[in-house]
Design a protein around this nucleic acid. Structure first.
Lengths: 254, 254
DNA sequence: TAGTGGTCTAGACCACCGT
DNA sequence: CGGTGGTCTAGACCACTAG
């Protein structure tokens, strides 16, 4: 029996059929389709509210309402005077809204990423399930460590579908840098849009212990993350380990 | 140095001065004031959009926008055909959206609450800080256990300001039931509106071990919660302990 | 049936951005 | 400067709720 906290349900995929839904809902679904299909890309703004209203034969206010819903969902961003854009996650800064390292004085620190290994292998059952592929299908397994100052903070095991992320195999370890998601996008053309994390506590096995510099069996926090594209395709499954006594997680309810 | 995850910043308190803010913003701030002051209570609907527009000399659409923002903030709820109401948290069901127990088959279970002790005491420094009162001020300390089937799952230590929660001291332990927040509201007229939780990892002391039926020094998950009223007054500070190997926490990012 | 919120229209003027 | 989103107005009609 497990104690489980669940926060924020997944977005519903836009329904298959347009019923007698409100106009702005049908508009929103149509826009989602364009974003997922890539018809609206990230290189320039989407058509203006006025244009969309004209081309769909509706009032500007109705277009606004559809767009506002998509902005709330995180799919679009508006820039006054410039236009409305398909949102591209700004992992350079944004991911650290969720994932931060602070020192004793509360200063935010940026951890260094150190890629330890990148190798092609076959997916065991659990990995295959999480990635939504066949057991035994080719996957890439990465081991990675994150440092603050001279101290290893997190050890990570990361799996991706080898057929989609093949370019990573060509890359020297030293070229991976501190952030993976921009790399996925640059090298493989795959953009992480959302992630779901589960946190639990476990005990360090020998690999974890060796990489974190602790003893075998020491308590560790385990964060399992499933990262998905905008069309809900699972792109990556990773498991991060950190020393339990250094871990804390804050959340606001309601 | 700590690994800290932070999710959702606290709402900004409405600014002290109305600048040249948009009309709907100033309206929203005015509405927040009325909710916090209790001018708009939970017994009936707030004035209709039409009435509010007239009394403030603005268009209905502007009132709508202010109300929609407050609905998004969770302060109001709209009921078509009936009216708009100050939201009262429905802890009977709602809190379990965040806090759920599931068994092996994924079935959601409802834990039993067992109040172990309720006593008046003086606030130590740390409790006083969390509750925002003077060190040594009178507080009520409660010890509580939560059970699923015949198994103790969580042990809790709960502190509230004795001057505001005095009625709890009169109550027989068996009358506390499974949920505290409805009790706070019924007996003390204080409504919990939001909470902030921090999760970390620790070791069971003798009290925790005795109540969870584990060994002294066993690893436990520690959840510290600060619960506040709608006007951000801190009402309760609690610390919950659960066996680490039975704990997990899920969250969706973006 | 009267009154509420939900949807939608068709404008106006403003603040901001890029050229 | 023209075009964009941001604010605001003043209505219309609909779906729903409650007495």
């Amino acid at each position: 029996m497990n104690l489980i906290f669940a926060h924020r349900p997944l977005d519903a995929t836009p329904s298959v059929i347009d019923d007698r839904l409100p106009l702005y809902q049908r508009l929103k679904d149509e826009f989602v389709r364009r974003i997922r299909a890539g018809t609206w890309g990230t290189d320039g703004p989407i058509p203006s509210e006025h244009q969309l209203a004209q081309s769909h034969g509706v009032a500007v206010g109705t277009v606004r309402k559809a767009i506002e819903a998509l902005v709330a969902d995180g799919m679009l961003v508006r820039r006054q005077g410039s236009g409305t854009y398909v949102r591209r996650a700004d992992f350079g800064n944004a991911l650290f809204r969720f994932f931060r390292y602070t020192d004793a004085s509360g200063q935010t620190l940026r951890p260094r990423g150190e890629m330890l290994s990148v190798c092609a292998t076959e997916a065991p059952a659990t990995i295959a399930t999480h990635l939504g592929i066949q057991e035994g299908a080719p996957v890439i397994r990465m081991h990675r460590r994150r440092w603050v100052d001279e101290e290893p903070i997190v050890f990570e095991e990361i799996h991706v579908d080898a057929r989609r992320f093949a370019p990573l195999l060509e890359l020297p370890l030293s070229d991976f840098g501190d952030l993976l998601y921009p790399l996925y996008e640059r090298r493989c053309g795959l953009r992480v849009f959302r992630a779901r994390e589960t946190i639990r506590f476990g005990l360090a096995d020998d690999a974890v212990a060796a990489n974190l510099g602790c003893a075998d069996g020491d308590p560790v926090a385990v964060i399992e993350r499933t990262a998905s594209a905008i069309d809900d395709d699972v792109l990556e499954w990773r498991r991060s380990f950190g020393l339990a006594h250094k871990f804390s997680y804050s959340i606001e309810l309601r």
